[in-house]
Design a protein around this nucleic acid. Structure first.
Length: 819
RNA sequence: GCUUAGGUGGCGGAAUUGGUAUACGCGCAGCACUUAAAAUGCUGUCCUCUUAAUGGGGAUGCGGGUUCGACUCCCGCCCUAAGCACCA
């Protein structure tokens, strides 16, 4: 038999599978149970597939092959998130049209995926930049629009001076543009928004019924940031103006000794003529304006300026209190104004200490004023001292408790007082979210055009459905000038006037690419449909997605946006489910051998193609999954992959020990084989691939020691390995005389009878310490085992003549003699 | 600072969820094969005491606790990584 030649084998089978259309499925076949496994589709960058893709796509490919062998009709599609900035930036540099680069890159990716033996049917892919795809992105936009989920507003937005585009808060990383790393500026820009906040509660609630990692769910809940509180109005002295604040602690209202406004709070303009230190205030506002939100909240030291000459009235006790502006209060959260209670809020306390402001304690850990309240005198005294310390600024007490210095509310419990105090001062209980509506407008070229046109009076109208796809014009110069590239398209302008009339103008912004990727999984079941985004029957057959595998870095954006899309579409009646991904698992990052992130600048990026050439796709696939648990980081260590390569070589060589169908392997081997079948099946199902591979290695090491192996047993083993190493197993399968594909075989079943052990090793412990072991026959009675254990020399020695107080027997495992 | 995850040999990592800690793989050492090397196979490989075997003691970040028995559960502390950033 020849040496294991991975190159030859892998090329041979990849060509054969291609020729046989091995990865095609009948999407209307209802005779089998369905399973929909989804990968996060890649952005086709010029760098090609990276190791992170390799791990994640291999993980899903293994699951696909496993489920298929188990008799499921499995949909495991792939596509490309093809709109986006890199292609446009590349076009700016090289003048090569993004459509051209994108197509080239997609072909590279497809080639690489085939090289890895990934079983995708590329005739069924979805490409977001394809007009046949984005027609439906636009169509869904229009449905959202018609149902009041889209609105336009002019607002302060993050502006990336390098990309010349608006980016969402969620896409700002450390005050810098997520894509290019440039510092973000603030700019007033008109933008279209999706009302994701309408679904804030549903997005929290829906998490309860899906099988996602707990930390991912928690992170989404924190991101949405629901907080219950009250809105309360403070009057400004000698003026009709009022300032509304949001607070989660209305129970502390009596302790509000000053107010703080965000520098961008609109009321400041109205009061300018009364501000005595207007220059100082304007200066502060100007400085805050240039800071990004990140800068403002990152500063350790709080800063602020008092609005001199203006005072507010605390509605609870009618006291006059000063008003400050400070950039630690954000314009975009709550009402952009707070009441400051330094005695009971850490941030307010810090600010009050710095500017020497009054601190008034209004919450006590226990009731102090009620004379009937039966607590010891000494305890009363210490609480009174504690309150005095809080007033002096020694501590900040941010807990709940009992009210003091709060007039008629004294002694009431702070949780109960929230509502009564709010009512008393005419405020109302409200719920506030950290989540903001999703700004989707981008002043970029390479994106999905927003299907909106404006009549001569400036009113927005949807482009009627019959004109979809509303195509991206080709006659555009990409060089950014601060105005949207589409504004320069003659074709788009003429098209608009031709259809709608003279003076009509097109919307020139394109959509955030997260819009494209928020619904792509709905397209895969029916990617060629020109009449619907997906037919009703295919939707019903395939959705929701059963298993979604991808990186945890998408927790806040993609995964939240996709859930919003499905919830919105469900509300409109376009789909009949409200959670897109039933089960979600993350894969960890792939690091270099030193445990560092791979990056171009560090020059430690590893190209999957090189690895496949050197070790073969089967080794690369198996090693990626063997090296660490799927959700953990994997260090790509070239020295370690040889272990997997040797394993595959052993599998290969073992073929020469295979004896014909009628022979039987030793019981020992059959026993281990069936245990392995059970373990590998369970492990794959739970995506614990590392231990599945290890179990197969153990089996092979045992089989290797035998003179001969029954063909049936060897074949069963090959089936277990087939999802991980599809090429070598297919080749060996054929060498054994089979004419069909191993990947069309059914998954081996384990035989409980063959898994039973005839004897067991039982460990003997004296007082919990291991002192020996005995072999017992299967079926030995508990009493006999205990007796046997007591009779051992070692036991006698360690019992030192003592009678056991207690004997614990764990069936077939352990006897613990307690003396 | 907050949140989440984690801390087990020289390294990547196992441990049936409270029952022999260190499976499997890498590396290392020795042996066999070879003119030699590579490759391959075999043996050994947590630390420590004892010349050594037998055997003993210790060890899952640190300190306590529960239990016949703890990597696993509880309390306190330390450290690492990732994410989030004053959310009123």
């Amino acid at each position: 038999m020849n040496k294991y030649n991975h190159k030859e084998i892998e090329q041979k089978w990849q060509e054969k599978w291609q020729k046989d259309n091995a990865f095609k499925i009948d999407k209307d076949d209802n005779s089998k149970p369905k399973y929909y496994i989804l990968d996060m589709f890649p952005y086709p960058s010029g760098d090609g597939l990276h190791m992170g893709h390799t791990e994640s796509y291999t993980a899903s490919d293994v699951y696909y092959r496993f489920k298929k062998m188990q008799g499921f009709n499995v949909l495991h599609p792939q596509g490309f998130d093809a709109f986006g900035l890199p292609a446009e930036n590349f076009a700016i540099k090289t003048k090569v049209h993004p459509a051209e680069t994108t197509e080239k890159n997609i072909n590279t990716y497809i080639g690489q995926m085939k090289m890895l033996g990934l079983a995708y049917d590329f005739d069924e892919k979805a490409i977001t930049s394809d007009p046949k795809y984005y027609k439906w992105t636009q169509w869904i936009f229009e449905q959202f629009y018609k149902n009041g989920l889209v609105y336009k507003k002019t607002s302060k937005t993050n502006w990336c001076p390098s990309c010349q585009t608006v980016i969402a808060n969620e896409q700002v990383v450390d005050g810098k543009c997520e894509r290019c790393g440039t510092e973000i500026e603030q700019k007033e820009v008109p933008s279209w928004f999706f009302k994701i906040t309408d679904f804030a509660d549903d997005l929290i609630e829906g998490l309860k019924k899906i099988d996602w990692p707990e930390h991912t769910k928690k992170n989404q809940v924190n991101w949405i940031g629901k907080s219950e509180g009250a809105e309360i109005e403070f009057r400004i002295q000698n003026s009709e103006f009022k300032i509304k604040v949001f607070t989660t602690r209305p129970d502390t209202l009596f302790g509000a000794t000053y107010m703080v406004l965000a520098p961008e709070h609109p009321i400041i303009e109205n009061l300018e003529n009364r501000i005595q230190n207007l220059d100082e205030v304007k200066n502060y506002i100007e400085r805050a304006k240039n800071k990004t939100e990140m800068d403002r909240i990152e500063g350790k030291e709080k800063s602020g300026v008092e609005l001199k000459g203006i005072r507010a009235i605390n509605p609870a006790n009618n006291e006059e209190i000063p008003i400050f502006i400070a950039d630690y209060v954000l314009g975009g959260y709550g009402t952009g104004a707070i009441m400051a209670v330094p005695a009971h809020d850490e941030r307010d306390w810090e600010f009050a200490k710095k500017y020497d402001l009054k601190i008034e304690p209004v919450i006590s850990p226990m009731i102090v004023q009620n004379p009937d309240y039966s607590v010891k005198h000494s305890e009363q005294k210490s609480v009174i001292n504690f309150i005095a310390d809080v007033r002096e600024g020694k501590y900040c007490f941010a807990e709940v408790g009992y009210l003091v210095n709060s007039g008629k509310f004294n002694d009431s419990y702070s949780v109960a007082a929230k509502e009564t105090i709010t009512k008393e001062v005419g405020g109302k209980m409200t719920i506030n979210y950290r989540l903001r509506d999703w700004s989707i407008s981008r002043q970029r070229y390479w994106g999905c055009p927003i299907p909106i046109v404006y009549s001569p009076d400036g009113t927005a109208h949807l482009v009627p459905e019959e004109h979809l796809p509303w195509t991206l014009p080709a006659d555009v110069d990409f060089v950014p000038t601060g105005t949207a590239p589409l504004a320069k398209s003659k074709e788009l302008k003429e098209r608009t006037e031709k259809i709608f009339g003279a003076g009509w103008t097109p919307e020139v912004d394109t959509m955030d690419t997260f819009v494209d990727s928020s619904w792509y999984f709905l397209r895969y079941p029916d990617p060629h449909n020109e009449k619907e985004f997906c037919s009703e029957s295919r939707l019903k057959n395939w959705l929701p997605v059963d298993l979604y595998i991808g990186g945890a870095e998408h927790t806040y954006m993609h995964l939240l946006f996709a859930r919003f899309f499905v919830k919105a579409m469900n509300k409109i009646g376009l789909v009949n489910f409200d959670e897109p991904f039933q089960r979600l698992r993350h894969q960890g990052m792939v690091l270099d051998a030193q445990g560092k992130k791979m990056s171009k600048s560090k020059g430690n990026v590893i190209n999957p193609n090189d690895m496949v050439n050197r070790f073969g796709a089967d080794s690369v696939r198996t090693y990626m999954l063997f090296a660490a648990p799927l959700e953990d980081e994997v260090m790509w260590n070239e020295d370690n992959i040889v272990g997997v390569y040797r394993f595959l070589e052993k599998v290969w060589k073992l073929n020469s020990k295979v004896k014909n169908q009628n022979s039987k392997s030793q019981f020992k081997i059959q026993n281990l084989l069936h245990k392995t079948i059970k373990k590998v099946s369970n492990d794959i199902d739970n995506l614990k691939y590392n231990t599945a591979v290890s179990a197969m290695m153990i089996l092979i090491n045992e089989m290797e020691k035998e003179e001969e192996i029954a063909q049936q047993d060897y074949e069963n083993f090959l089936k277990l390995l087939a999802p991980f190493a599809p090429h070598i197993t297919e080749e060996l399968w054929q060498i054994l005389g089979n004419t069909n594909s191993i990947h069309d075989e059914s998954w081996p079943k384990f035989d409980e009878n063959l898994m039973k052990d005839t004897s067991h090793t039982v460990v003997i412990q004296i007082n919990g310490k291991v002192r020996g072991e005995i072999q017992i026959e299967e079926g030995t009675s508990d009493d006999d085992v205990k007796k046997l254990a007591m009779e051992q020399e070692a036991s006698k020695k360690w019992m030192m003549g003592n009678e056991p107080k207690k004997i614990i027997y764990v069936k077939n495992k352990l006897v613990n003699i307690v003396i």
